[in-house]
Design a protein around this nucleic acid. Structure first.
Lengths: 151, 151
DNA sequence: GGCTGCCTGACCAATTTTGTCAACATTTTT
DNA sequence: AAAAATGTTGACAAAATTGGTCAGGCAGCC
């Protein structure tokens, strides 16, 4: 089980855009260059996110994309949900009860549970947090490198 | 994100085998018939599970497959791990630190965390439990149906 | 030794992923 | 109003993965 390139690119792109003030237009070519995606593919990936109101777009000269929501209010799950198919719930071994619509397959409810917990986890990570962590990590890295240089 | 047919078949097959005493040989054709898998595909799916010591096989007349471990000691994760690729960890935006091997990309650690929680959840479900739940659900279903018949 | 059944690796079709492209629709600039 | 810069859309296509099949080999049992 794996996340698709599309999901990864989408996350990286939003993380990159989170560095700029919400609403500021970010140039497509800048996103593509820094995140290593082709423009055509980025456009494709962004479409559903624009429809969902996470990202906005501006045509014409000086156009590009911008965050429509505060990074704090965008979570990994928001991106995940848009880019990935839902977790597959396996068909029940015993189906089509006449009297009830309950699920008889124990594996079914197990997967539902796993899926819920997974969603809960993904919701913990909003992009304000991720951007802050990234910044912090970069700081630490610079310090560590300096220390090493002294050795 | 979805689980493969192979994973689902594998889980269903082990759940079916859990109904029989551990070590008892179960005929391939019975597994295939009840779980709706082709024999050739089931063979393919079972191979890695045999290598991992979850299932045993017996050739010759009266041969087939059997559980090598108690259902109680087989969890959904055991099957999942064998059949699915590991959760993809996205590459760090900032890579190849000279001084440290730490990860600087915050998304990386987020995925690691999600993965761990997912594994924890999958480990909660062992096949003794699943088999018991299945049995229970079938009982309930019969009762419900009887009630409906009275209406 | 022959029958029954699993094992292995090669093979293949269908589906999904990962893009690309061309024509079109807007917006800004001049 | 025309031109230039950009995003939008849908069709297309290559590559990878999934979901199987098959033939020949191997191991037990009678």
């Amino acid at each position: 089980m794996i996340i698709t390139r599309a999901t990864e690119y989408a996350i990286r792109a939003v993380l990159y855009m989170s560095r700029f003030p919400t609403g500021d237009i970010v140039l497509k070519k800048d996103i593509c260059r820094t995140q290593d995606v082709t423009p055509a593919f980025l456009t494709k990936i962004f479409q559903p996110m624009i429809k969902e109101g996470i990202i906005g777009s501006q045509r014409g000269v000086g156009g590009g994309f911008y965050l429509k929501k505060e990074p704090k209010h965008i979570t990994l799950y928001d991106i995940f949900e848009i880019q990935e198919d839902p977790l597959y719930l396996n068909k029940c071994l015993i189906e089509e009860g006449n009297c009830a619509r309950d699920t008889y397959c124990p594996v079914h409810s197990a997967w539902e549970n796993v899926r819920e917990k997974m969603i809960d986890q993904l919701r913990l990570y909003d992009f304000a947090r991720l951007a802050a962590e990234e910044k912090e990590n970069i700081q630490k890295r610079i310090q560590t490198r300096n220390n090493c240089a002294q050795d």
